[in-house]
Nucleic acid binder design. Structure first.
Lengths: 160, 160
DNA sequence: TATACTCGGACACAATTAGTCCGAGTAGCG
DNA sequence: CGCTACTCGGACTAATTGTGTCCGAGTATA
């Protein structure tokens, strides 16, 4: 069970988009991170479909955050890119085999599934407690404020 | 990102193994759950490699739990079957591209990775707090104590 | 000692993820 | 007002991982 690597790209892109209010093209983000622009486009499309970013077309188009960074959680990004479904899927093993419990007795989910889903909920809650703004602040604290500032000027200027 | 379905099988097998102190063959467990015996064998091998169950060879061989059910957590099973590695892998995006932060400044992990790993830790902690014994107790409460008892007699007797 | 039953690892197949490509659409410019 | 150039969007292909199967090595039993 490995998480889609696109999640990492999407998160970094969201942090970068924090620095610019003007639309940023997918190719620019790809060059900034030195990743495949074609593939990054797919992740950005997922974010757009989920309503986290808005796409503006045309000559000077690109992507912009739709909401304030404080109101976008990591859970939102993960659900958008990696899919909203639960990681653990219960196939109702208890209803199969010679000792199958009858279906009418299965009003509550399987205890195994309950425990696994409870752990997933803890994971989701932890992800939902962190916002993109928190990440941007941490990046500032780590790499210094001049980093994001430099990126911002690089994004707005047409430099390659 | 979907968890390996074998985790579900392995957990149910561990719960069933709680009921029997004698070795249980993989084929028996497969028939009980109505799943592929060949594939279930692979999961049991993973559990054996991790030291959670012990394999007894020979004519009346099978698998037995090595420890008490109270000391086997769901995290142990998940790590054994699904792999111990983290679900989120950091590819150090920050060290790439025109604004790459130099490697010597990367003493602490990327903030993005830190947040993701913190969420994973919450998930693992929740999994580590539940034991196979807890699951068996819940199954008893749900399906009634006669269910596991019947399975136990079915396992020990040579019935097909 | 022969045998039948067990696990164990090596071998194919399928599904999901990763990555690429070209077409539809739109804002800017002449 | 039309053209151009640049953007996103979805459809297509390749690689990796998970799923499922098979047969051989080993051991307790009779």
């Amino acid at each position: 069970m490995k998480m889609s690597g696109g999640v990492e790209w999407a998160l970094h892109c969201c942090v970068v988009l924090t620095a610019s209010s003007a639309p940023v093209a997918a190719a620019k983000l790809a060059e900034l991170h030195d990743v495949s622009s074609s593939y990054l486009a797919k992740q950005l499309q997922s974010l757009a479909r989920a309503g986290l970013i808005h796409s503006v077309q045309g000559k000077s188009g690109g992507y912009v955050l739709t909401r304030a960074p404080e109101s976008i959680t990591l859970l939102d990004v993960v659900r958008a890119v990696d899919g909203p479904g639960p990681t653990f899927v219960c196939t109702e093993i208890r209803q199969r085999g010679p000792f199958a419990t009858p279906a009418d007795s299965c009003t509550t989910p399987c205890p195994v599934a309950r425990a696994m889903w409870a752990a997933e909920d803890a994971w989701r809650q932890a992800l939902g407690a962190v916002t993109i703004a928190d990440l941007a602040r941490d990046v500032d604290a780590n790499s210094g404020p001049e980093a994001l500032a430099g990126i911002q000027t690089w994004l707005t200027s047409g430099a390659s």
